[in-house]
Computed example of a mutant assay.
Amino acid sequence: MTGPTVLISADMEGISGIVHPTETNPDRYDYDRSRRLMTAEVNAAILGVLEAEPDAAVLVADAHGPFRNLLPEELDRRARLVRGQPRPLGMVAGLELGADALLLVGYHARAGSGPAVLAHTMSGAVLDVRLNGRPTGEIGLNATVAGHFGVPVVLLSGDDVACAELRDLVPGAVTVEVKHALGQAAAVTLHPGEAQERLRRAATTAVRQRAQVPPLTLPGPIDVEVDLYSPATVDLATLVPGFARAPGARTVTFTGRDMAEAYRGVQLLVQLGQIKPG
């Protein structure tokens, strides 16, 4: 009998031992170590999933920065890897293929949270995202787009603030606090081996009780507001049909027919934020 399909979306800022932007930037100090730590925590989650469901199909979406961080040769060979960008569902690519549960590994809190390690939303180009007026970070965006596909978020690992953020949205989810935030670039962190063991056990529990966790749904239409760092990005965004400038210099608004469309719109604004004025 075929087992469930489990998607693991892996970010880097919420991995144990990582506290500083230089550790998450491919061009900076200690990134190679961070890649190994990230891959090891994802492997721990894969192991936990397969202990719960030996016949599960496990798909891993590399979801940090360039989406090319996990070391393919060191990833558990029983999993398949979604790598590279752009892709339609960004951090949760693979949901469109069908999934029974989503695990968020190495996640961080939304922009404006604090103290929280490396808190932001999508990129430095974005200051805030609001769905129907509610501030929403990557955790909320990914959980609600998963809900659009009928998939529950059953687990999150990260710092204490990220864990609390998911529990507020999905009270039945399992969370694994791998570090306690002291600030934007400081934390009390578990030893990586201890974090991996806790994550393995939690993934087993989360997958076994997945039927008890309802998907987080947000019916459309959805009013989206995105505060952008650069007014030049707002100028570009107003060239897109359906996107408008709110009063002031930095906020773009649009309406998504459903959460999948709203999510794609936010992704587009993130990409526009990478374009520098000519």
Score class of each variant (00 low, 15 high):
Arg78Pro: 05
Val207His: 00
Glu53Thr: 06
Ala57Asp: 15
Leu169Arg: 15
Asp62Asn: 06
Arg35Thr: 11
Leu190Lys: 10
Pro277Glu: 06
Ala237Asp: 01
His20Ala: 15
Leu103Gln: 09
Arg245Gln: 12
Glu225Ser: 12
Gln184Asn: 06
Gln212Val: 09
Asp55Gly: 06
Asp128Leu: 08
Pro221Tyr: 11
Asn142Thr: 15
Gly172Glu: 15
Phe149Leu: 08
Phe67Cys: 12
Gly133Val: 09
Leu216Ser: 09
Gly3Asp: 03
Pro4Ile: 07
Glu96Phe: 05
Ile15Pro: 00
Pro72Glu: 12
Tyr263Arg: 13
Glu197Gly: 02
Ile275Phe: 03
Ala40Asn: 11
Gly137Lys: 10
Gln271Ser: 14
Leu131His: 01
Leu155Phe: 04
Leu216Glu: 08
Pro277Ser: 10
Gly3His: 05
Ala56Glu: 00
Ala164Asp: 14
Asp258Val: 06
Val153Ile: 03
Met122Pro: 01
Phe243Thr: 06
Ala101Thr: 14
Val117Leu: 08
Gly65Ile: 07
Val49Tyr: 01
Thr24Tyr: 09
Ile18Pro: 03
Leu239Cys: 06
Val6Ala: 00
Glu13Val: 03
Gly220Asn: 08
Leu269Tyr: 09
Thr204Tyr: 02
Gln85Lys: 15
Leu166Arg: 03
Leu269Cys: 10
Val42Leu: 10
Arg83Lys: 15
Ala116Ile: 15
Glu73Leu: 04
Asp235Pro: 00
Met259Arg: 00
Asp27Ala: 11
Val126Arg: 09
Ser16Cys: 14
Ala79Ile: 15
Val153Phe: 01
Val117Trp: 03
Asp27Pro: 00
Pro66Phe: 06
Met91Arg: 02
Glu261Ser: 11
Asp100Phe: 01
Leu199Val: 04
Gly90Lys: 06
Gly256Tyr: 06
Asp227Val: 13
Val19Asp: 00
Ala203Cys: 09
Asn25Ala: 12
Gly90Arg: 08
Arg80Val: 01
Ala45Gly: 08
Val270Gln: 02
Arg201Ile: 11
Glu51Cys: 09
Arg134Asn: 10
Ser9Asp: 00
Asp76Arg: 02
Val60Trp: 00
Leu75Arg: 01
Glu261Pro: 02
His120Trp: 13
Val266Met: 08
Glu197Ile: 04
Leu190Asp: 14
Glu177His: 09
Cys163Asp: 03
Gln209Ala: 13
Leu75Asn: 05
Val126Thr: 11
Asn69Gln: 11
Gly147Glu: 04
Leu81Val: 05
